[in-house]
C-alpha cells in the first residue's frame, strides 16, 4: 500500500536533528492534523500535477474559507503604537518568532545549511499600497461596469422569504471588522527540495469594502496574489513570502518560502527538548502552523493544540 509507493531520498528521520520531514513523515503528520483539526483535508489536486512519491489521495492539505478579519499591517500599527511586546511567541532567539518591529536574523541567505534563494525580493517598495500597481492591476479592474446589462426587475421576483441586504444591516452589529473580512484557502504542500512543508495562500476579496451591507450577500472574488501580502507580517511580506506557481493547483499563489523552515523548526524542537519535552514527528504540522501564524498573524486557520506535543521526560 502506501508505504511501498513512497520513495524518498531520506529514509532515516532527521526530524530532531535538522527540523526536516521525510515524505512518509509528512503523510503521518498530515493524517494527524486532519484528524485533530477536521477543517483540514487531504486532496489530490490536478491529476497532471500529482507527485508520484505521495499517495494519490494525499497530495496536499487544504483548509478553505478561513476568515481574515483584519489586515496584518493594521495589527502591526496598533502593536507598534502600543510600544508593545510580541504577542505571538516568546522564543526571542529567532527573528521569525520574535518581535515584528525589529527582526534580528531574517535574512535567508545567511543560513549556510540551505541553498540560497533567487526569488525572494519580489518588490523593493516599502508600502503595501503600491504592490497592486507594481503588477499593473487595479484592485477593482476585474469587474467591468455591467450596468448596461442589468436585468429588468422581473428576473428576480420580489420574494418575501429572501433575506435582503437591508435586513442584514439591521441585524448585523456595527462592527467595522466585518468590513475588512477576507477569506483564504490555506494549503500545505511537501517541498521535496527543502524537505519541509510549505504553506500557500489563496485569497478571496472583501468585495463590498465600500458598502458593507451589500458585501454580506455579495460576491467572493479571487484576490490578486499580490494583495495577499497585506495579510502577511510586514517583516516577511517582502522577503519570505513570494508569489509562485502552486505545485498542485493552477495559478499563482502567495507562499511562505521554505528555505528556513527546517532551521526554524529545529530551533522550536530544541527549545521543547530543553524543557524536557520530546516532540513526536506526527505533531510536526502543529508546531509548523504555530510558527506560520507569526508570518500570517490575522488569518485564523485552525491549529488547535490542546494535547501533548510529545512524550515528556519529566
Amino acid at each position: 500500500g502506501t508505504v511501498e509507493r513512497i520513495t524518498g531520498p531520506r529514509t532515516v528521520s532527521a526530524f530532531k536533528e535538522k527540523g526536516v520531514l521525510s515524505i512518509s513523515e509528512f503523510v503521518v503528520a498530515g493524517d494527524n492534523l486532519v484528524s485533530k483539526c477536521p477543517t483540514w483535508s487531504w486532496e489530490s489536486g490536478e491529476p497532471s500535477k500529482r507527485k508520484s512519491y505521495l499517495p494519490v489521495e494525499k497530495q496536499y492539505l487544504i483548509t478553505r474559507n478561513v476568515p481574515c478579519l483584519r489586515r496584518a499591517a493594521s495589527v502591526e500599527e496598533e502593536y507598534e503604537a502600543a510600544g508593545g511586546e510580541i504577542l505571538l511567541d516568546n522564543e526571542d532567539n529567532d527573528g521569525w518568532l520574535a518581535t515584528h518591529g525589529k527582526p534580528k536574523e531574517t535574512k535567508c541567505d545567511d543560513e549556510e545549511n540551505f541553498p540560497s534563494m533567487e526569488t525572494l525580493e519580489i518588490s523593493k517598495n516599502k508600502t503595501i499600497q503600491s504592490i497592486p500597481s507594481y503588477f499593473g492591476g487595479e484592485e477593482e479592474e476585474d469587474i467591468p461596469d455591467m450596468a448596461e446589462y442589468e436585468e429588468p426587475d422581473n428576473l428576480i421576483e420580489t420574494d418575501a422569504a429572501t433575506l435582503q441586504s437591508s435586513y442584514l444591516v439591521v441585524h448585523e452589529p456595527d462592527d467595522d471588522n466585518i468590513l475588512r473580512t477576507r477569506t483564504y484557502d490555506v494549503s500545505i504542500t511537501y517541498d521535496k527540495y527543502y524537505q519541509t512543508p510549505r504553506v500557500w495562500l489563496t485569497g478571496y476579496d472583501e468585495v463590498g469594502h465600500r458598502n458593507y451591507a451589500l458585501w454580506l450577500i455579495s460576491s467572493r472574488m479571487l484576490l490578486q496574489p499580490e494583495l495577499v501580502l497585506e495579510d502577511v507580517s510586514q517583516d516577511h511580506a517582502h522577503k519570505t513570502v513570494t508569489i509562485e506557481d502552486h505545485p498542485h493547483l493552477p495559478g499563482k499563489h502567495a507562499s511562505v518560502h521554505p528555505c528556513r523552515h527546517g532551521a526554524v523548526m529545529k530551533k522550536i524542537i530544541d527549545v521543547l527538548m530543553s524543557r524536557g519535552v520530546e516532540p513526536e514527528v506526527d505533531k510536526y504540522l502543529f508546531l509548523f502552523l504555530k510558527f506560520v501564524a507569526s508570518v500570517i498573524p490575522t488569518i485564523e486557520y485552525d491549529y488547535t493544540m490542546d494535547f501533548d506535543l510529545g512524550s515528556s521526560s519529566n
Partner: peptide, 16 residues
C-alpha cells in the same frame, strides 16, 4: 445578486 444588483459577474485571469 452581484453586490445587490441583478448583474452577472466577471473575472479576468489574464495575469495567470
Amino acid at each position: 445578486l452581484n453586490r445587490g444588483k441583478k448583474v452577472s459577474r466577471c473575472i479576468t485571469l489574464a495575469q495567470s
